[in-house]
Design a binder for these strands. Structure first.
Lengths: 164, 164
DNA sequence: ACGATAACTTGCATTTCGCAAGTTACATTG
DNA sequence: CAATGTAACTTGCGAAATGCAAGTTATCGT
């Protein structure tokens, strides 16, 4: 099977357009979100706990995200079946996009997220982002955010800073 | 023609997921970008100056964006053929998302945008956003950003603050 | 060795996309 | 006021993407 490079037809040089060619679909950013704040690492986790993505689509997205340098995939030492996915620097740099998307959705749509939590995040963007980055750097996989609207909605965000 | 309400199948209550159901495709955010920083108002402008969107898709997106309360469509008084599209408050609130997407793309992908411009925007996010919001409030349609990579790439962003 | 697991493929029906051409309503021109 | 033009869409249709169910391959635990 011939490897397919990035799409040949670049619509324009606009950064927004190019960004959308990479992550502009209904699933890619959800996968990235799960890697970023829910501590997901494996195919199975995405498949099961996600919003119902089909396995072939998931495989396709993981492949494309890897090809774009947004995530890496590596086999686990201790268990050769498992593949561990994680965000690259390029991937974690999508945190601000995700955060703004979260804030926008919470403000303008009926979501399962408690408003207070989001308003709090809005006022402390930088702290939230700093925590997301720290987790990435230190490979901390403990879930940062609950799964809004799935029964965990009432709980509030774990404090952004651990110690202080 | 039976009106179709919002998608019935909501994947989850997560704000990110819901946001993506509204604008998570390859075209919606480009239309919003053009309304926001290029001063586009009409169907024709999107169709011609855009990245090559098909007219049926454009019509579909405009319809959906209107249904989602992100844009409004109103016939022009002086010329009954024309329909003027503009962003609602909900629509202009996507500015931070777009800005972060722009910054990310410029940093991590080969785009037609001069790096210096973007780095400058990154350091003055709030000023850029303030200007975008001012333009929206005052219905100022002068283009704010050039069309990167289409020959206008060399020019730099018009100063964010007018007077100072 | 044998069943369980994890990570994918494969087939196929359905939906969406993309392109070209056509339609409708209004406006302008002669 | 008839002819031509323009703006905003539809329509038709082949191609590509999506969603589902089932199958495959390579470990792993016992």
């Amino acid at each position: 099977m011939p490897e397919k490079k990035a799409k040949s037809t670049r619509r324009s040089g606009c950064p927004v357009s190019i960004s959308l060619e990479r992550i502009g679909d209904r699933w890619s950013l959800l996968v990235i979100r799960d890697l970023m704040v829910r501590g997901f690492r494996t195919f199975r986790e995405f498949e099961q706990a996600g919003e119902g993505i089909a396995s072939n689509i998931l495989a396709d997205r993981l492949r494309k995200l890897e090809a774009s340098g947004i995530i890496t995939a590596e086999r686990e030492e201790s268990d050769g079946r498992r593949v561990n996915y994680r965000l690259t620097k390029k991937g974690i740099d999508l945190a601000p996009v995700l955060l703004e998307l979260l804030i926008w959705g919470a403000r303008h749509e009926e979501t399962g997220a408690p408003c207070a939590v989001i308003m709090n995040m809005e006022e402390s963007r930088e702290e939230v982002l700093a925590e997301v980055r720290r987790r990435w750097r230190e490979r901390d996989s403990t879930p940062l955010l609950p799964k809004f609207g799935d029964g965990g909605g009432g709980r509030h965000l774990a404090r952004t800073r651990r110690g202080a």
